[in-house]
């Protein structure tokens, strides 16, 4: 019976090899004078999360348009996709391979060990390997401004934070947000909840509803795709707002998204792309804060009715104070407990 089957697969493999010979010539890498080849692996949130992965993709597209780089994106459907995706890009000798998200930290570490000649970049986590560049953000800075805006807009003296998974990275958002709110309104109540995942829009919708029902009228949602569910929720609630995260989500529900705490993953991606094109293969740890335009708020385009010029001026003043070091937004719950509002001089 084996005789019957073997030719079939042999034929398949032969046909494939023929196709290979005809079609395949590896693209030249940058070292050989070709364009830079940039690969990117999304986490399970994937493209279209209108958040983190999309922001990274914008940076990649900017590199393609402005730096004439060849780009490829591989989306991960499950955690088991991370390593194969990274490995394929390494095998295909991409000049720099972006791993979008701390979920891939262990995988980047393993693949980088196996492919010491390739270069990788990881967003939101630190991987200590010579051929890995790590990019992190001062989320607490931007979240502080978001908390301040929330406190200004709140009529109930109650705001809330809805996070994805209760981990140190998300607590930076939580602590910064709560501190910023207290900076404006020292007695404000700040509720905190976590959805438990970054890709469950239904949970985001449900839990944001709970927070609104409990009296919060501004909810800061830092939960990846789950944030889309929260934006869905707020559309039906007059007088309530959400604050978006990562990408500019203001236009998803104009007038209902107070502002977005944008994390310019695209800025980080683009900066590393620039270094790659300049044949300075990046490594080390890049930290992006307010000063570097790595984090910040959007311009309240649809919410000027609440965010009066006065209030916006206050936000700008806070921003300057953080950059100047006058205010140090807390990045952990412990630091938050120690946080005292700083007097806002003129």
């Amino acid at each position: 019976m084996v005789r019957g089957l073997r030719p079939v697969y042999a034929a398949l493999i032969l046909a494939g090899s023929a196709v290979l010979l005809a079609a395949c010539s590896h693209a030249k890498s940058i070292a050989d004078g070709g364009p830079a080849r940039l690969g990117m692996v999304t986490d399970v949130g994937g493209l279209g999360d209108r958040s983190f992965n999309d922001s990274a993709y914008r940076g990649l597209l900017a590199a393609k348009d402005n730096l004439h780089a060849d780009v490829a994106v591989l989306q991960s459907k499950s955690a088991s996709d991370y390593q194969p995706n990274l490995t394929v890009l390494a095998n295909k000798e991409y000049d720099l391979i972006f791993a979008i998200g701390f979920l891939m930290a262990k995988d980047v570490n393993e693949v980088a060990t196996r492919y010491p000649a390739r270069h990788f970049a990881i967003i939101d986590a630190v991987v200590d390997q010579p051929n890995v560049a790590s990019v992190t953000f001062k989320e607490e800075d931007g979240s502080f401004l978001a908390g301040a805006a929330a406190a200004m807009a709140s009529k109930t003296h109650q705001v809330a934070f809805l996070g994805g998974v209760d981990i140190p990275l998300l607590r930076k958002f939580e602590a910064g947000f709560a501190a910023g709110a207290r900076e404006i309104d020292p007695t404000i109540k700040v509720a905190v909840k976590y959805t438990g995942s970054f890709d469950d829009a239904a949970a985001g919708k449900e839990l944001s509803g709970v927070l609104f029902d409990q009296g919060a009228d501004v909810v800061f949602v830092a939960a990846g795709k789950a944030g889309i569910g929260a934006i869905d929720q707020v559309k039906t609630r007059p007088g309530d707002y959400v604050i978006g995260v990562d990408s500019d989500q203001d236009a998803l529900a104009p007038g209902k998204v107070l502002t977005s705490m944008i994390k310019r993953v695209d800025v980080g991606v683009f900066r590393l792309a620039q270094e790659t094109v300049a044949q300075k293969l990046p490594s080390g740890h890049l930290v992006l804060g307010l000063k570097e335009d790595g984090v910040g708020l959007t311009a309240f385009q649809y919410t000027k009715n609440v965010m009066t010029p006065d209030r916006i001026a206050t936000i700008k003043r806070l921003r300057a104070m953080i950059i100047a070091g006058t205010i140090k937004p807390p990045s952990t719950r412990e630091e938050l407990a120690q946080f005292k509002p700083v007097p806002l001089g003129r």
Partner: peptide, 13 residues
């Protein structure tokens, strides 16, 4: 041809 070529090259290259 390009599609399957890339597929087979990626699997067995």
């Amino acid at each position: 041809i390009n599609g399957f070529g890339a597929l087979l090259d990626g699997a067995l290259g």
